[in-house]
Design a protein around this nucleic acid. Structure first.
Length: 424
DNA sequence: ATGCTCCTGCGAA
DNA sequence: CTAACGTTCGCAGGAGCAT
């Protein structure tokens, strides 16, 4: 029952390189929203010592010194490139689980075992040729092992050239290999668990694989026991094809500058609620309640801190932007306190259910419903055709003084004609 | 005891 | 010149509450 995990190399950097060949062979990093921290690094940047999630201001000097090119993240571009990659990958298996923006699992059940490495190479070549993105392929009998095989493919372990199939290795070879991999590299073993495992003398993948399961269960959780079983070739985590609908939708941002006025916060919250509502309708769901929260800058230790959240239940589940914005603003008004410098706010839609499953109440007015659905549909269509943010509701404002910093943006090469660079 | 909801912590990308 | 530290999602498990 082999499974492949296909993962794009330095995905955001690779996307930028497809459209700007000057970025090839030089150190490049992509920064998070607000140009806060590094979220993708080219191999060259990694070699210079730039760490993942490292704040930009901490390595800006190093970047200057070595000519590291830093770019703001361009999620419109990455989302579009991801869709192209996933579409190609879907042709390589009847069953695909899109796990994140840059990786997916493919079910390789029934493929001749001795041909899988070759098949992996074909996958790599096809994606590279058709979209320009380099990928690596890990193959094994469980998702956790496929992730680990991918890790080995990326690092070139065991002579891997972008593809690693654990099914080709003997028990003894795998034991030896696992003995060299730190336990923290395993999918599902994070920082906290790594620290704790180390104190128990469990340092490598092999240590975890062969540890006493009862000990793992009592010291940790059922989750880590499942991880351990998967390392022993026992599948515990199913391939999730359908993409089960989300249970909550969150939209939040740090502000480019701090904000104090309720009016400005209201604009941001209305904007986030509008974005969240569009996602909700995209999913074909309705929300039962809206949670709004705000936060001062926790990193500024000298300043007065305040954070608060408020859940606003709706009289009935809804996907109507005006209803959701109204609820979010009502919640914000209740938790807002003057005299603080706010750095972040957010809107969460909770209690999501499929739209069709909701029972209309006695007080429900079908005519009002149809009117609202029509308006929301028109809004979504215009924003789809003209670009996100073309139409919203007045409460979102137009100035966006709270908008995030993105000083180093590359153009939207694939989704906006107006941003194509001049030829020559 | 049992079953809920709410909240926090953790992990992942 | 200074100040500057991401976002979105699911799951487990404990607390608190009601039955």
């Amino acid at each position: 029952m082999p499974i492949a995990l296909v993962d794009c190399n330095n995905f955001y950097v690779s996307c930028e390189r497809v459209f700007n060949p000057k970025l090839e062979g030089v150190p490049v990093i992509v920064l998070s929203n607000n140009d806060g921290v590094a979220v993708a690094r080219s191999a060259e940047a990694r070699a210079l010592g730039v760490n993942m999630a490292e704040p930009w201001f901490k390595f800006e000097k190093l970047a200057k010194k070595h000519g590291i090119i830093a770019l703001s993240s361009n999620y419109t571009l990455y989302g579009d490139m991801s869709a192209r990659v996933m579409s190609i990958l879907s042709t390589f298996s009847p069953k695909q689980e899109i796990y994140s923006i840059d990786e997916c699992f493919l079910d390789l059940e029934g493929f001749p075992p001795e041909t899988l490495v070759e098949y992996g190479q074909k996958i790599r070549q096809t994606v590279r040729r058709n979209v320009g993105i380099p990928v690596c392929v890990g193959i094994a009998d469980t998702k956790t092992l496929a992730k680990l095989a991918n890790h080995c493919a990326k690092k070139g372990f065991a002579g891997a050239d972008g593809v690693c199939d654990f099914g080709r290795g003997s028990e003894a070879q795998l034991s030896k290999l696992f003995g060299r991999i730190p336990v923290g590299d395993v999918w599902g073993v994070g920082r906290k668990n790594t620290e704790k495992l180390l104190t128990l003398g469990i340092k490598t993948v092999e240590d975890l694989r062969t540890a006493n399961p009862e000990r793992i269960r009592s010291q940790f959780s059922i989750v880590l026991v499942r991880t351990q079983q998967e390392l022993n070739n026992v599948p515990c985590i199913e391939l999730d094809e359908a993409g089960t609908p989300r249970q909550q939708i969150m939209v939040s941002r740090s502000f480019g500058a701090t904000v104090t006025a309720l009016e400005d916060l209201s604009e941001s919250v209305a904007y986030f609620a509008t974005t969240a509502a569009a996602k909700l309708r995209q999913d074909g769901s309705v929300a039962a309640s809206v949670c709004v929260y705000l936060h001062t800058n926790a990193f500024k230790e000298g300043e007065p801190q305040y954070q608060q959240s408020k859940i606003v239940p709706l009289s009935q589940p809804s996907d109507d932007t005006t209803v959701l914005v109204k609820a979010a603003l009502a919640g914000l008004k209740q938790i807002y306190r003057g005299g603080f410098s706010y750095k972040k706010s957010g809107v969460m839609l909770m209690g999501l259910q499929p739209k069709g499953s909701v029972q209309p109440t006695l007080f429900d007015n079908p005519v009002e419903h149809a009117k609202s659905d029509g308006l929301m549909h028109v809004m979504d269509e215009i924003n789809r055709k003209m670009g996100k943010g073309s139409v919203g509701i007045a409460a979102s404002g137009v100035g966006h003084g709270w908008a995030m910093r993105r000083d180093k943006m590359s153009p939207n090469y694939t989704t906006d004609w107006n941003e194509l660079p001049e030829a020559g």
